[in-house]
Design a binder for these strands. Structure first.
Lengths: 342, 342
DNA sequence: ATGAAAGCGCTAACAG
DNA sequence: CTGTTAGCGCTTTCAT
C-alpha cells in the first residue's frame, strides 16, 4: 500500500524520485521545474504531473547551497511593538509574498550593533534586506550596502537605495498650520538622538520657522516610547509655549495622557501635533492632529525596489520619496486668547 | 595582499578553509564548532581562534541540508496589523533570540488555507512553528501537529501543544463586574465565526450569566477590526442593553468611536468592556475597561515550549494556561438610574 | 533537448 | 580524540 515516496510517505519527494518515476535524468527534472523553457514540452508536462502527484516541494536549502538564492528577504525593525512598523510590515509582506519570497523578521531592539551582527550572521539566509529605521552609522550602512542588497527606509545615505517618507516637508506644513492658528511660541519635542528621522524633522522645523518668522524651541531628547510622553509633557509645559510638534505619535499620545492628568486642556491651552498617524492616533483623546505617513506603501515600495535589485544586480541606486500630508484632528486649535498678543 | 579566504576576501570562509589553516580535518573543525566537548581542548581553541580570524560564519543551508535543523522557527499570525500580536511577537522574538533561533514571520491573512500551504511549502525552512490564532480546523490542526513540531496560541485541540490565554475566566469576571454595577441587560458583541477564542468567550459568558441570573444577548458576528465597531455599536444600541462585552479591544474601540458620534455617553448610557488590553486600550476615549492578557509572556512561553519539543522530540503534549485579569478603566460604570429597576 | 558528473558546505557514521 | 568517507538535494557545466 505504501508508495516508495511522495504522497502518503514520510520522506518528502526529491528530484531523484521524480526522475525515477519519469525515466529522465534529475538534471532534466531540475530544468523542467526551474527553467521550463529549456525542456521539451511533453517531457516537461509529464514531469510536472508527476511532481504534483508526489507533492513535490523543492528543498530550499539544497537550492540555496548551489544557487546562492534563498527566496527570503530579511526585514529588520527597531522595535516590533512600535505601531509605526505595522503598516511597513504589512506592505512588505504583501509585496514579498506576491513575488514568492518569505520574510525573515528581526527585531534589532534599537541597536545598531545587533543590526550589523544579524545582517552578517544570517547573510546566506536571505537574498536582500529591508532596514526599516536603521541605527547604523552612515559609514557602516554605506559599507554594508556595497556587500549586501539592501534598501533602507527613512534613511538618506549616499550609495544606499532607500525609500524616504518625507515627513520634513510635512513638518513645515504642520508648522504653517500652527502659525495660521496664531501660535508663535512652538516647541519641538525631540526623539532619540540616534534617530535619523528626528534630525530631519527638527531641521525642517527650524527652516520653516525661519521662513515664517517664529523660532521653534527644542525640548528633549526623549525616547520614542509612549511612556516618555510624561517627561516630554512636563518639559513642554515648562517651555512656556502654546503649541508643540512631537517627534512622533507615540510620544504625542504619551504627552496627551500626561497633560490630561495635569489638567491642561488640549487644544484649549496647548496644541499638539504628532507624526506618522499610527494606529491609535485617530481614537486617542483628543484625536491627534498628525502627519499621515504612507507606511504600507513605503513597505511595498521598499520591497519592490529590493526585488528589482535582486533581479538586476547592477541597478543604479534608487531613492524614492513618498509624500506625507497633514491630517487635522482635534489636538490643535487657535492660540489661547490671553496669549495671542505676545 | 589578498588572503586566500576569510577576512578581507569576498568569498566567505568555510570549514575547509579553517581545516587547511589549522592542519586538521574538516570533520574535526565541524565538531570543534558545534560539539565542542568532543574535541581536545588545545585543538579546539586553535580552531576557534582561526575561525574568528577568518570571520567564519556557518552556512545554515549546508547545515540544514545534512542535519535537518535550520535554527529558525516560523511564526504565523493572522494579521500583522492587529496590535494583539505585538506583544506575542516581541515575547517570541526574545525567547527565540536567546536560544539562537531566527524568526520567520508569516501573515496568513486570516486564511486557514494559506496557513496550511505556508506550513507545507516552508517545511524545511523552519524547525518548528508557532501558530498564533490558527484558522485551521481542529482535524487539520491535529493532523499537522503529528508531522510538524508546533505550538498553538489560544487554541485547545486534543494532541496539540498550546498556550492558552484564559480569557473565558476573565469574561466571567467581567460579567460579575458589570452585574455588581447593577447591569442586567448585557450584550456580547461577537467576533468572527471562525475564531476559536470567540466561541470560548461567548460560552463563558452564558455560563457566568446562568450563575448570576442574567441572560446575555448575542449580537454579531463582527469582524475583529476597528472598522467593524460602527456596525457593532448600532447593533448593541438596538439590543436595548445597558452594557456590552466586546469580543476584543479592536472591536470595542471601534464601538467607542461610533457611540461618541451618536452622542451616546460611555459609561453613562452604556458600559463597554473589551478584551486583550491591546495598545491603545489605555488612551482611547474613554479608556477601556478590559481583560488584560499576558501576551508577551504567552509568546515567550509558546516559544519555550516549542524549543523544548525540538530538543526532546517525544515530549508529552503540554498545555499551558495563562490567567487574565480585569483592568477597570473608565468605560464601565453603574447602570443608568432610570434603568436600574428593570 | 537531455544526460552524466561534479560539487555547494556541512554533518554523521565509521574507523582508527 | 581525530581522520576518512559518504552523502543531504539541488544546480550547473559539459558532453552528447
Amino acid at each position: 500500500m505504501t508508495q516508495p515516496t511522495g504522497a502518503g510517505t514520510d520522506r518528502p519527494a526529491t528530484l531523484a524520485d521524480i526522475a525515477a518515476a519519469t525515466g529522465v535524468a534529475v538534471s532534466t527534472v531540475s530544468r523542467a521545474l526551474s527553467n521550463p523553457s529549456r525542456v521539451n514540452r511533453e517531457t516537461r508536462e509529464r514531469i510536472e504531473r508527476v511532481a504534483a502527484d508526489l507533492d513535490y516541494v523543492a528543498n530550499g536549502h539544497a537550492r540555496a547551497l548551489t544557487s546562492g538564492r534563498t527566496g527570503a528577504i530579511a526585514v529588520l525593525i527597531a522595535d516590533v511593538t512600535n505601531p509605526f512598523y505595522f503598516g511597513v510590515l504589512r506592505g512588505a509582506q504583501q509585496q514579498s509574498r506576491a513575488a514568492g519570497y518569505t520574510q525573515i523578521l528581526v527585531d534589532t531592539d534599537e541597536s545598531g550593533e545587533l543590526e550589523d551582527q544579524v545582517l552578517k550572521r544570517l547573510r546566506r539566509s536571505y537574498d536582500g534586506a529591508l532596514l526599516a529605521a536603521s541605527r547604523l552609522s552612515d559609514r557602516r550602512l554605506a559599507a554594508l550596502a556595497q556587500e549586501i542588497p539592501l534598501v533602507a527606509l527613512n534613511r538618506q545615505t549616499a550609495g544606499v537605495p532607500s525609500v524616504f517618507i518625507d515627513s520634513p516637508s510635512g513638518v513645515e506644513q504642520a508648522l504653517e498650520h500652527l502659525v495660521s492658528l496664531g501660535h508663535r511660541r512652538i516647541a519641538y519635542a525631540s526623539g532619540p538622538r540616534t534617530s535619523f528621522s528626528n534630525a530631519g524633522r527638527w531641521r525642517a522645523m527650524r527652516r520653516a520657522g525661519a521662513r515664517l518668522g517664529v523660532e521653534p524651541i527644542l525640548v528633549g531628547p526623549f525616547s520614542s516610547r509612549q511612556s516618555a510622553g510624561a517627561a516630554a509633557a512636563e518639559a513642554v509645559l515648562n517651555a512656556d509655549v502654546t503649541a508643540c510638534i512631537a517627534f512622533n505619535d507615540l510620544l504625542a499620545i504619551g504627552m496627551l495622557t500626561r497633560l490630561r492628568e495635569r489638567g491642561v486642556d488640549v487644544p484649549g491651552d496647548l496644541s499638539i501635533v504628532g507624526c506618522d498617524d499610527i494606529f491609535g492616533a485617530d481614537f486617542c483623546n483628543p484625536p491627534l492632529t498628525t502627519l499621515t505617513a504612507p507606511v504600507e506603501q513605503a513597505g511595498r515600495t521598499a520591497v519592490a525596489m529590493l526585488l528589482a535589485r535582486l533581479e538586476e544586480s547592477r541597478l543604479p541606486v534608487a531613492n524614492s520619496t513618498l509624500p506625507t500630508h497633514l491630517t487635522v484632528r482635534a489636538s490643535t486649535g487657535p492660540v489661547p486668547d490671553h496669549r495671542s498678543d505676545r
